[in-house]
């Protein structure tokens, strides 16, 4: 699980990009806390060939599940 909560733009999507480049994982779960980061990660993930599911957690955060 990659926790990008509290990081300002563009650190959340940058962290995801770093993870994807380093490990090219089949799947990745990311925890974000704002819709800007969610949107950025969605656009990046789509361009990197992942499908993304977003779920709101009980604390009001967003859990993104990336899968190839």
């Amino acid at each position: 699980m990659l926790d990008v909560r509290g990081l300002n733009c563009p650190m959340p999507v940058l962290a995801v990009q770093r993870e994807v480049k380093a490990k090219t994982p089949k799947g990745l779960v990311v925890l974000a806390d704002n819709m800007t980061a969610v949107g950025n990660i969605q656009r990046f993930a789509a361009s990197a060939g992942y499908t993304v599911r977003v779920r709101e957690t009980d604390d009001g955060d967003y859990e993104l599940s990336l899968a190839k």
Binding site: C9, P10, V13, L14, Q17, T36, G39, N40, R43, F44, S47
Partner: peptide, 19 residues
């Protein structure tokens, strides 16, 4: 829309993202 002048150019450089 999250419009940002700095983000516009930055994202092109970092992610090839033209949004």
């Amino acid at each position: 829309s999250r419009l940002c002048m700095a983000g516009g150019i930055r994202d092109v450089v970092l992610f090839r993202d033209f949004h």
